[in-house]
Design a protein around this nucleic acid. Structure first.
Length: 106
DNA sequence: TTACTGACTCGGA
DNA sequence: ATCCGAGCCAGTA
């Protein structure tokens, strides 16, 4: 009945992350009802089709850094830049105080 | 059914 | 700040 799959709820939360903002794997897991299932969020994003309309690039780790490597990193980085998200050039992290969406510290 | 995996997170050194 | 070890839990085999 009303107990949707964890995956479906994660996708729903992800779809509500606003343009120009970012959130963390752990935060999405919490909003989806499983605070400790951050790793599953990553696994779900990994399985998304390349042509998905979901804003998967707005998800970073708790340090405000992109969890991907190589080409995928560049893709996510560029898409965030296009949305106006600012990266600290020295450390490569995003200031979650400014760009974080529904984060605890805010 | 059990065992292993990992786009994560946290606490301690 | 960095590094390391352990916990977590939904998929997958």
């Amino acid at each position: 009945m009303f107990e949707d799959n964890f995956k479906q709820r994660v996708l729903q939360v992800l779809n509500s992350v606003p343009y120009g903002k970012v959130t963390t794997y752990g935060n999405i897991a919490k909003l989806a009802g499983s605070p400790r299932a951050a790793r599953q969020v990553g696994a779900i994003l990994k399985g998304l089709p390349s042509d998905t309309l979901l804003p998967w690039h707005r998800v970073v780790n708790r340090e405000g850094k992109i969890a991907l490597m190589g080409e995928a990193y560049k893709t996510q980085y560029q898409r965030l830049i296009d949305e106006g998200v600012v990266f600290n050039q020295m450390s490569g992290h995003i200031d979650l105080k400014l760009f974080g969406w529904m984060m605890d510290g805010v």
